[in-house]
């Protein structure tokens, strides 16, 4: 579904992705973790070409991201993206946030788009907030709306970049629950997160990155119980320490 082959990316002289090879199969949930600045966001943002790659090959759902023939807008419609900062449209109601893309891109009739949006809102437990504006919602609620907005395009892949990092602790659970439900429907997901509970329960694979390099790739149990790389051991130790 997603295939990285010897992918490199530089920001000026900074080598942010260094020979990345990764294959995400259909229906798989892959968790990406690693220290700050290791290139996790950059990695996930290359998948819908928010960041272009400089070298190597990247194919997503059969589309070659380096080919000029690839319809970028179609690719992005197939790939949902959920941001750390939610990025809901503040000038639109919750319902309009969700229906905008389907009505403008898929030309779904307004009524039908609204019905679908309501189903999605039910799914994330926010049907009663249909007419609210983003600023009237808590962080957790905003993030659930953002997930519904991404799902409204009926994507084949969902990407999450630290979806719970900006949330108060008591709201993290509700968002992770929605993501877990989504994983159960067989959605292909790539999730950047430090929520190790989520990784353990939901992920099929954990990828550990440092300095733009994928250092380790393993089943969650294996990764947590028996990390191979020193950097991974250190990272996990820090993550699990009470100081964190």
């Amino acid at each position: 579904m997603i295939q990285f082959q010897n992918v490199h990316k530089w920001f000026k002289t900074l080598h942010v992705l260094n020979d990345v090879n990764l294959h995400v199969k259909q229906g798989e949930v892959v968790v990406v973790c690693g220290p700050s600045g290791s290139g996790k966001s950059t990695l996930i943002r290359t998948i819908n070409k928010l960041e272009p790659i400089n070298e190597g090959h990247l194919t997503v759902d059969g589309m070659d991201l380096l080919s000029k023939k690839t319809d970028l807008n179609r690719l992005r419609a197939e790939v949902g993206f959920v941001f750390q900062q939610f990025n809901l449209y503040p000038h639109l109601s919750v319902l309009s946030n969700i229906t905008l893309a389907p009505t403008k891109i898929r030309k779904t009739p307004k009524k039908e788009a609204e019905e679908q949006a309501m189903q999605l809102l039910e799914r994330v437990g926010l049907a009663m907030k249909r007419d609210a504006y983003p600023t009237q919602l808590s962080g957790g609620q905003q993030q659930r709306v953002a997930i519904a907005r991404a799902l409204a395009m009926k994507p084949r892949i969902m990407l999450f970049d630290e979806p719970t990092s900006a949330l108060d602790p008591e709201m993290i659970g509700e968002v992770l629950q929605v993501m877990q439900d989504l994983a159960k429907t067989g959605m292909t997901m790539v999730v950047v997160t430090h929520e190790m509970g989520f990784a353990r329960e939901v992920a099929d694979r954990v990828v550990f990155m440092d300095h733009g390099v994928i250092l380790e790739e393993a089943q969650p149990e294996e990764f947590f119980l028996n990390p191979q790389h020193d950097r991974a051991k250190q990272f996990l130790k820090q993550l699990l320490s009470p100081m964190h």
């Binding site: 928010l50 807008n73 809901l88 953002a146 991404a150 395009m153």
Partner: peptide
Amino acid sequence: PKGQTEAAISTGLKGWQTMLY
């Protein structure tokens, strides 16, 4: 904020649609 553009194009909106809406 840049995140608004990123969110919009991530749903597949074209450049001019992102600008307009």
